[in-house]
Write a protein that binds this DNA or RNA. Structure first.
Lengths: 264, 264
DNA sequence: TAGATTGTTAATCGATTAACAATC
DNA sequence: TAGATTGTTAATCGATTAACAATC
């Protein structure tokens, strides 16, 4: 297959940067809220604030879509909603399947935001025969045996995996073989897929670990730096050094029990 | 407060890039799996494959942590598990609260990966009085009235918000006022928080929309480019242009019903 | 010593941002 | 016209990657 992709093939038609694509849904959400309040126009400054980004970035992002604003005035809310929806492919209907109807799968099935924007839950699929036929979020759970036919019959191209980690790759393989080309993975595993298949990953424990990293840094900064020598030479044995749990700072200032990592 | 942060204050002690921090949990997961299989050492190449990144990036990432490998040999699995855990702050105990015990909150409470790595669910909190006392994942649901005392008593610094969008900001404000400084937000809203508080967001519908964007592109590319003129002049009215739902390509090649966006 | 693999360099690429000319 | 705000430029910053010298 050759990982070759020397100069980025011109294939990437009207190239919108990934970072921009990832923000379009945020803009769309903010615009939808404005639309519901019947606000006719909005400036980049206002919209940026609502979406939680800065206005220069927003204008740059919009410039990739075209010139949809009016200098001195701002952006027409309805028009922009339509343009962004179209760009994201939300003006068409995307049937999706959710595989793995445990706690999480059921939560996803019940999630309203699903239906609202172009997505339609075509089927809920679970490997447990006891689940088959049971209604979840108004849909009867289907058995895994039917996976291929469900995908084919409904023209499903997007699959959501909410199975345990151990089953995820196998489910993924079947989804892909049946024609799914985009996967949203909630199972804590790295999925391997053939080229041309997109995988996005939602991982609770990764997010928590990133927060813990920053949280630890905050605790460390309270006593200011100069607390560790060079970071390299560290005891290869040592049972995990623990702080007395939490060491929370209600606010910001130092609160006593800080040393999170003490030098050997 | 001055948004001022001219040259990036030296505060950022031993600065590890954000992109690297976000990958450390991936490496840790792969390493933990190796550790369970009692694999003693691993090369950057092998580990990178397991984590789904390329080896140059992995080595660069590790170089920020220190020199923990051995040239010609690789990395000691146990040692690296310990070092990354420590770097991420997982060698200490992080009590967390989950607010909003609907489908999603319950799913999160039941999620095993939570407890396994340094995180402990200190309490489940819900605004519905009818939920109070009910056991979910072995813990009795507590009423929102108790939020502040729970946080203070348990030294909670990380909060998970799984409420409806409408309640999220208010819950966030109370969490922050009570001392929480890191928030994982599952509600589809932009939260505003004071400086010093970290927010990470998990948003199903954003992820789906990003997938839809790429999915649409795939459909478009099958007929190759040159199919739309300049993108600008688009009908301001026009009911959303629709494809016959799906227009799926089983595999890669063209499959007949392709044109996703047709010129007006 | 010969082979393997790390840690680091330097080039490249992509994303962010302030600033401002264009223009409504 | 004067005021407002977009769309774009250019500088800067951060992330990725190939390549290879260092070294086990």
């Amino acid at each position: 297959m050759a990982t070759g992709r020397t100069h980025r093939p011109a294939t990437r038609s009207r190239g919108i940067p990934e970072a921009t694509v990832a923000r379009l849904p945020l803009y769309l959400r903010a615009l939808t809220a404005l639309s519901e309040r019947s606000v006719p126009t909005v400036s980049s400054e206002e919209l940026a604030t609502a979406a939680g980004v800065n206005s220069a970035k927003l204008r740059k992002d919009f410039s990739y879509l075209g010139s949809y604003g009016t200098r001195g005035v701002g952006y027409d809310v309805e028009y922009l909603v339509y343009q962004i929806s179209r760009e994201l492919g939300l003006t068409q209907d995307w049937p999706v399947v959710i595989v793995g109807i445990g706690n999480l799968g059921a939560a996803l099935a019940n999630y309203g935001g699903f239906a609202s924007r172009g997505f339609r839950v075509a089927a809920l699929i679970d490997a447990d025969p006891a689940m088959a036929g049971k209604p979840v979020a108004g849909l009867p759970v289907r058995h895994t045996d039917e996976l291929e036919s469900i995908i084919t019959d409904n023209g499903v191209s997007i699959g959501v995996i909410a199975t345990p980690a151990g089953a995820a790759q196998q489910v993924c393989d079947r989804l892909v073989a049946a024609g799914v080309t985009s996967i949203l993975n909630f199972a804590p595993t790295v999925l391997s897929v053939p080229e041309g298949v997109d995988v996005r990953k939602v991982d609770l424990s990764i997010e928590l670990q990133i927060l813990a990293f920053h949280e630890q840094r905050k605790a460390g900064e309270e006593t200011t730096s100069a607390q560790e020598p060079a970071a390299a030479a560290q005891p290869r044995s040592g049972a995990a050094v623990r702080t007395p749990a939490g060491g929370r700072a209600a606010g910001k200032g130092p609160d006593g029990d800080v040393p999170a990592v003490m030098p050997a």
